[in-house]
Design a protein around this nucleic acid. Structure first.
Length: 110
DNA sequence: AAGTTGACCAAAT
DNA sequence: TATTTGGCCAACT
């Protein structure tokens, strides 16, 4: 039995298209939880089912995990598989997910 | 009940 | 571009 907050967060993360990335704060906003970026990180770790968690990163486009850790390496390779290119520690800015209205409405069809 | 923590963020410096 | 600062708030000590 999960908090409604987490469900909203998970749903929003699922709406991120492959090959795109979003920030924690952005997910929080889209999920109707402005200012609660930290809750997003928490929710990702508690997800009961597979999520495209690797598409979520910090607002400065760096990974949330410390460089060199197993988690960071995994996230990096998952993104590379989707065609996301890195410049040093951060992903190129043009991979940022910029949802338009119809895309958001579609993701809310339930 | 009170203090700490965290897959964060924006603004100022 | 990097670091600091203050803010955020649900979950845990």
């Amino acid at each position: 039995m999960w908090s409604a907050y987490y469900r909203q967060i998970w749903q929003t993360v699922l709406a991120i298209p492959p090959g795109k990335v979003a920030s924690y704060g952005q997910i929080a906003d889209l999920a109707g939880l402005p200012g609660r970026a930290r809750l997003v990180g928490k929710a990702l770790g508690l997800s009961p089912e597979p999520l495209p968690w690797h598409r979520v990163l910090r607002s400065n486009l760096t990974l949330a995990f410390a460089a060199g850790t197993a988690d960071a390496l995994l996230q990096r390779s998952l993104l590379l598989e989707e065609g996301v290119i890195f410049q040093g520690q951060r992903v190129c800015a043009h991979y940022r997910w910029q949802p338009d209205l119809s895309e958001l409405l579609f993701s809310l069809q339930y």
